[in-house]
Design a protein around this nucleic acid. Structure first.
Lengths: 274, 274
DNA sequence: AAGTGGTCTAGACCACCCG
DNA sequence: GGGTGGTCTAGACCACTTG
């Protein structure tokens, strides 16, 4: 038995002990934990119990598990600054490409943008049936039969980090635009194809666990916390023209909005935190 | 055997099959799935394998597990509209109380605000040592010794939904202000105590799994996706005066920001989606 | 080849919720 | 009491990474 009796599960008490060791610096940031069999022996519990504790701490972004290598204390996460116009409140994830989250992974001197970065089309699935499609239809004030949909993935630093789904009203899109593999900014492309300018109507933020398909596209385990950012853009006369739903790998970065002019005081956000 | 061979794990294939049944309406929203032993028998796999598949779908907010009762298909989640001034971009979670997330739980006719809703102090831990404290110090441009900290919880609809940590510079806070159990809006209280007005400097959004303490405060399993909203507020002359870090239960609601004046066109966000 | 984490099984006991 | 999910164990085999 790890410690004494209590009504809280063994694996949770174990998780707390491991967390304490991380907080206390017994397991410093970046260091490797003892292997599962070792922890299993030290605490006198089954390896599966160890795994359950470690899995919780991994989902809480405290630990990082590297298969075949070991389990490590996660170093603080990076923040990604996003330029925001204080008046229009405009910001776009496209600007992230420039302030890349250095993933501590690039082996060579690939300090900047990695080959293969950017947004690419992954599919243009038929609209109808799914709950997501129904919702998009409601947001745009159309029936699902009037909508077209495009799904894309944005790669940053060589890894997929954002999954996007776009719904637009009024019929099919140009085949070239939705060809899987086509690169380029989809919002600009859609606005261009429609020949209109787009304004924000509303935006929503949320957090959700990755579903099976998003998990696969992002290369993360299902249930990984994702930042969801969705909303509707309209034409200047107020007609809804685009519904976007982005799912952003939460482990990779934090997105920062600045409300004051640069240099107006304040310090700006730091670059570290878990 | 669930299906045929393949290199993808059995529990993941099982999860996909269950997901398909949900999508197809074989398991409609709100309905109960077969029990774990039943699924175990139907697919010819161990109960633990079933549990692994179900756990993934639960973290993806597809299923909801009720101990001693059963596993259910999650109905679509609600959105919580938050009033936003398009110019100042000010919004506060306090306004959430009015647009209540109907949790399908209130048994009586408790349609509106629930008794016990609101923000209450849970602790005023000493500052120093933790990585969070170090980060707060960096954001405020002080040393940890100069900071005070207060943690609060906001209950909405009778359940804790938001955990807040506030750091302020310049010494200890009034004991009455940080007494555990004290109710009331903490931002207002802090600004009042300091006798200053606060403006936004920057705000960051992210998603992260609940750590052990947040999980306990929110009454959710560790790893539950949380929306993190953090940032610094300054006095009008630009001096950093407050660092806030909020963790919002992602399963409960989506937070919506409106960028256009009401009635200027558009439809506004709908109230459903997963 | 050796060590790491990942998957899967079998079986047991428990805590919870309901009728 | 009977069914549900929650925890824990023991043991086995596999896939991945590294030297």
């Amino acid at each position: 038995m790890a410690t004494h009796r209590s009504d809280t599960p063994l694996y949770r008490r174990l998780a707390r002990q491991l967390q304490e060791r991380v907080d206390a610096g017994t397991y410093p940031a970046g260091s490797r934990l003892p292997s599962e069999p070792e922890l299993s022996a030290e605490f006198g519990v089954n390896r599966l119990t160890v795994r359950q504790a470690v899995a919780d701490l991994e989902r809480a972004a405290v630990l990082e598990i590297r298969r075949g290598v070991g389990t490590f204390v996660r170093p603080p996460a990076v923040r990604v600054s996003i330029a925001v116009d204080p008046r229009s409140q405009r910001f776009d994830l496209g600007s992230v490409h420039r302030s890349l989250p250095l993933d501590a992974e690039p082996p060579g001197g690939t300090a900047g943008t990695v080959e293969g970065d950017g947004e690419v089309v992954v599919a243009a699935p038929p609209v109808g049936g799914s709950a997501e499609d129904d919702e998009a239809a409601r947001h745009l004030g159309r029936s699902t039969g009037e909508l077209a949909r495009v799904d894309t993935v944005i790669r940053i630093g060589g890894r997929p980090r954002v999954v996007n789904s776009y719904w637009v009203p009024s019929g099919p899109l140009p085949a070239e635009l939705v060809r899987p593999g086509r690169p380029g900014n989809m919002v600009l492309a859609l606005a261009g194809a429609a020949g209109v300018e787009l304004e924000y109507d509303w935006r929503a933020f949320g957090a959700i666990g990755a579903d099976l398909t998003d998990a696969e596209l992002l290369g993360v385990p299902p249930g990984t916390p994702l930042l969801v950012r969705e909303g509707v853009s309209c034409t200047p006369d107020g007609a809804p023209a685009l519904y976007v739903r982005r799912r952003i790998d939460g482990s990779s970065a934090r997105f920062v909005l600045h409300y004051r002019e640069p240099g107006a005081g304040g310090l700006g956000p730091n670059r570290t935190t878990r």
